[in-house]
């Protein structure tokens, strides 16, 4: 092997140092939370935030946080919303993409543009008037109302499905039609099973989005037994104002599921990011 040139060597050093530095910066705020979450009230009051807790097995804060913020309710509600909305939006999104990709009809381009245009309208901003509609429909303070608002198709999942359909050869449809299959049959029996990778990607992306969603659940689910995970977490602004050992425990409880999903579906998450980026 050739000897490394000095320039390359320095470049390599800089490369690694900067990446390690960035990773540390990215992780420190979260890691400090981990340290703090395991501290008893006494330790919390008397030790520096960077000190290690006496024991990493002291789960009292987690238990307290879980109970106080009623996170069990939050997880149950968020879980239910996730299941229903994800299943529904996979079907809604893939069916829409199927029609838009496979059929040429008047208004095809118009509908694509409509969804594109809709994606430009800032979500939080329209809630002022969506609130009124929700009120008129009697959707406020009902889990199903919140679910239905979330089902509104987002442009990113449409794009992911559209891209995917583009790469599935039309000859598959053709031969199935020749064999006497209906269009419904083509979609449900032949194409839908092939969509699996796209379905996983949209589910992961949309799932993370729903899990983290705060604004609408705060607006449309106002009773305590309808708290979702993020509104449950928000309750820590109140009584625990500065007891950060409890707050950190609460924060970690909400982060852990996301971390697990991320570790399992890294590829899909990164891939989905790229799909979202090419929306111009």
């Amino acid at each position: 092997m050739k000897k490394m040139k000095l320039g390359t060597f320095i470049f390599t050093i800089i490369k690694y140092i900067s990446l390690i530095f960035a990773s540390i910066i990215a992780l420190i705020p979260v890691l400090v939370c981990v340290l703090t979450a395991f501290k008893t009230n006494e330790e919390y009051a008397n030790t520096s935030v960077l000190d290690r807790p006496q024991s990493f097995l002291n789960f009292d804060n987690f238990v307290t946080a879980f109970k106080q913020a009623n996170m069990l309710r939050g997880f149950l509600n968020t879980g239910l919303v996730l299941v229903v909305v994800l299943v529904a939006s996979v079907f809604i999104g893939s069916m829409l993409a199927y029609v838009l990709n496979r059929f040429e009809f008047k208004g095809n381009a118009f509908i694509r543009n409509l969804f594109m245009f809709a994606s430009l309208i800032p979500g939080i901003a329209t809630q002022v008037t969506v609130y009124q509609i929700m009120h008129k429909l009697g959707f406020i303070n009902h889990l199903y109302g919140y679910m239905i608002v979330l089902m509104g198709t987002d442009i990113i999942s449409i794009y992911i499905f559209l891209q995917f359909f583009e790469n599935i050869s039309v000859s598959l449809d053709e031969s199935a039609i020749m064999d006497g299959c209906t269009y419904f049959g083509v979609f449900f029996k032949i194409l839908f099973p092939l969509l699996k990778p796209a379905i996983v990607t949209t589910m992961v992306l949309k799932g993370v989005g729903i899990y983290n969603e705060y604004y609408m659940s705060n607006l449309y689910l106002q009773t305590p037994d309808l708290k979702t995970i993020s509104t449950a977490l928000y309750t820590f602004t109140g009584p625990y104002g500065n007891q950060y050992n409890y707050i950190c425990a609460g924060v970690l409880i909400t982060i852990i599921p996301i971390l697990i999903i991320f570790l399992i579906f890294q590829k899909q998450v990164y891939g989905g990011m790229a799909a979202g980026a090419v929306k111009e």
Binding site: L19, S23, L27, C33, T36, C248, T254
Partner: peptide
């Protein structure tokens, strides 16, 4: 993949949690 994961992960944390993390920070 470790660097990628570490740098990217903050993006997945819920905005409310990010708020608390930095209020503490």
């Amino acid at each position: 993949s470790v660097f990628k994961g570490a740098i990217f992960f903050p993006y997945l944390i819920c905005g409310i949690a990010v708020g608390f993390i930095f209020r503490f920070f």
